[in-house]
Design a protein around this nucleic acid. Sequence first.
DNA 1: AGATCACTGTACAAATTGTCCAGTGAAATC
DNA 2: GATTTCACTGGACAATTTGTACAGTGATCT
Lengths: 169, 169
Amino acid sequence: MTNDQQSEHSDQTVDELDAKLLLLLTDEPRLGVLECSRRLGVARGTVQARLDRLTERGVLTGFPPALDLGAMGYGLTAFAVVEIAQGRRAEVCEGLAAISEVCEVHATTGQGDLFVRMVARSNADLQRVVDHIVDVPHVRRLSTSIALSTPVPPRVRPLLERVKGRSPR
Amino acid sequence: MTNDQQSEHSDQTVDELDAKLLLLLTDEPRLGVLECSRRLGVARGTVQARLDRLTERGVLTGFPPALDLGAMGYGLTAFAVVEIAQGRRAEVCEGLAAISEVCEVHATTGQGDLFVRMVARSNADLQRVVDHIVDVPHVRRLSTSIALSTPVPPRVRPLLERVKGRSPR
DNA sequence: AGATCACTGTACAAATTGTCCAGTGAAATC
DNA sequence: GATTTCACTGGACAATTTGTACAGTGATCT
């Protein structure tokens, strides 16, 4: 037995072995290529090739350090829906990007609005951050809500697991 | 010169060297300890100790692989504000967590609501996912908006950079 | 039938890791 | 002021891993 990549020749960019590899690295990201090959029961070169290809395809973009902002003192996470003046998205985004506490901005459907994720050290600090955002030119209205808890932290696992064993749904 | 950690003895959990190290790893996550020490101009043991301590403190939680869901076929990202029946948060969250496409859930202030981030392969697929969410027991109302673009992708850099060089604001 | 592709298994030099240790300032403690 | 503690330096060593290359083998595509 040599080649056993019986992927469903679908246009999927990630086959079963890829998924297994990514799951493995999700659980233990510091594993080396050699160790991965052992755990997966494939040759080292295969793991290496897979990783290279995943990277080429743009699926795997890297292994950035995961930081717990809470442990860094930023215990508060908040979301904001920002209404802006028409046609000013680029400028507003630039303004938002200049605020350190702004960790993520999306342009969304709805009212040509922006959706912002931000962090702060305390309620008072959040106030300050919010004021900052409001101060960005062309920001019309800001609706903020604080994250009280995070029942489902950012995850990709289920998507990968579905590929691994062709699970349901 | 031996010890030069002139951090501002603030209650900060991350000093300048930590920040530099984390920034370095943010840019080139696959760097080894040795290479980091060279780039930072410190001894290898120092880098090792810093990483260990950052991990102990819970600041550095790991190096998970970063996947581009778009490249995996999930080209759509959407956000949803979910209104639920009072006192049913746990159950609803469980239901949401069971849906693979649900990548993140936060409980937020506002109306005891949930905030959901999800992905889908297409508009039709999104429809399916939304239907799924609506089908979760005790979900009362769902307000969905699609992410059209992401002007500021998830980032932590600015927060680290502020520590590195005591920048403004 | 022939070409291509992915994977296996092996090999070897170079680099990195995991550890340990002695020495040195700086800062905190007595 | 003396002492202890702490973080960092710099060096050393064995064990492991990486980068790379290459021949062999099925399966799939043309």
